[in-house]
Amino acid sequence: MIGFIGGSGIYDALPLENTREERVTTPFGDPSAPVTIGKLAGKEVAFMPRHGPNHRHTPTEAPYRANVHALKQLGVKRILASNAVGSLREELPPQTLVIPDQIFDRTKHRTPTFFGDGMVVHMPFADPYCPHMVSHLSDASDKATDANHQSGGTYVCIEGPQYSTRAESEFYCAQGFEIIGMTAIPEAKLAREAEMCYATVAGVTDYDVWKSDSEVTLQEVLENAAKNEKSIKDVVEHAIRTMPDERDCDCGHALEGTINTPTEAISDETRERVELLVGEYL
C-alpha cells in the first residue's frame, strides 16, 4: 500500500476506484481524518489530509504521530506527501513544484519522535527524504506535468502559523535555501522512525517576504495552492502508477542499531505503545 498525505489545497484523494473509509485508532490518538483507501492502476492507495476536514489543524497542532502511525497500521510502506511552500529563490516563482532532498528544522513546539518515556532511539537523519523516492518523484515531475519544477533543494520548516519576519526570510535566503514551509517536520522524522520511505512534492505559493516590501497574504497562498493542485496530483498519480513493487533502499530497516535502551529496561507500557514500530528489534 502507498500512502499520500495531502497538504494545504489538497483535501481529497486522487481518482481512486472502489474507495472505502477506514477509521483508525492509534496509540498516539486519532489521525486528522478517516483514511480513504482505494485502487489506482492496480495499486492500493491510502489518502490522509494532513490538516483534516476544513483545514482545522494548524501546522503545530496537526496529529503527525497519529497520522503516520495510522498509515503504518494499514500496511503503508511508502508515503508521498505534498506541501504548500514559499520560495526563497528568484528562479522558483509561484506555481513551481520542488522535490526537496534536505530539511532545515526551525520548529519549536512539536514532538518529533514516537519514542521517549523510558526508551531512547537515536535515528540517523542525514538524508531526511528517501533518495529513491526523491528520484522517482523527480522523474514523475518530468513526465507528468508542464509546470515549472526543480529536483533537489532545502526545505526550511518553521513553526508557524505566522509567516516569517523579514529578517528571518532574508536570513534563510542568504543561506542558499530554496523553500520555506511549516509541515515537513516532524512528518519526515516520524516516517523514518516508522521505517517508511518518504518524499514530498512542494508547491510554491509565494515569494515569502525577502523579495519585496509586500506581505505574504492568505489569499495569495490559497489562490496559488489551488492552481498547484492539478500539477501536484498529476505528479503523485504518475509516481504511484510507475512505483516499483519492491523497495530498494535502507528505509525498511532504519531502526536497526538505533535503540539505546536495554530491552529489559523498557516498561511494558512503552513497549506496548511502540510494538508495531520496533517489535522485531525487542
Rank of each mutant, 00 (worst) to 15 (best):
D234C: 01
D250P: 13
P124T: 06
E220A: 13
Q73H: 10
I99S: 14
G42P: 12
T205P: 06
L277I: 00
P49H: 09
S151T: 11
H69G: 03
I240L: 08
H57W: 08
P186A: 13
F115W: 07
R65I: 01
Y281C: 05
F125D: 13
I180N: 03
A191G: 05
P93K: 15
K108H: 15
P63T: 00
T111H: 06
A46V: 01
P244W: 06
N18K: 06
G6V: 02
L92E: 14
F114D: 02
T200Y: 00
I259A: 03
H136T: 00
Y207E: 01
I232H: 06
G203S: 04
S214L: 12
G160A: 10
Q95C: 14
P53H: 08
R56I: 15
V35D: 04
R247P: 08
A202P: 10
E61T: 05
N54V: 05
P15C: 03
T154V: 14
A81L: 13
E178L: 04
T26Y: 03
V120L: 08
G118M: 12
V278P: 04
E246Y: 11
G116L: 08
Y198N: 02
D268E: 14
T111D: 06
D213I: 09
A147G: 08
G116C: 07
G153Y: 07
I103R: 03
F115V: 02
E61A: 11
R78K: 12
A239G: 07
D101I: 15
F115E: 02
L276W: 04
R50S: 01
R23F: 03
A194T: 02
V120H: 04
M182W: 07
K143W: 07
G153P: 09
R89C: 13
T145P: 01
L88G: 08
L71E: 09
D139S: 11
E22Y: 03
D248H: 15
E237L: 09
H132V: 14
H109L: 15
E22K: 00
T200G: 01
I79E: 00
F171P: 00
L16D: 00
V45I: 05
Q95T: 15
V134S: 07
T258P: 11
C249W: 11
T217N: 09
S82R: 14
D146L: 01
R56E: 02
A226W: 05
V216R: 06
P63N: 01
E170N: 08
V76H: 03
L71H: 08
V216C: 11
H51S: 00
T26M: 00
S82K: 15
G116E: 04
R273I: 03
S231F: 10
D142S: 07
E229G: 11
A126C: 04
A144D: 05
Y163T: 05
L277D: 01
P59I: 00
S32I: 04
A144P: 10
E223P: 07
G153Q: 11
P49I: 01
E91M: 13
E229Q: 13
M119T: 09
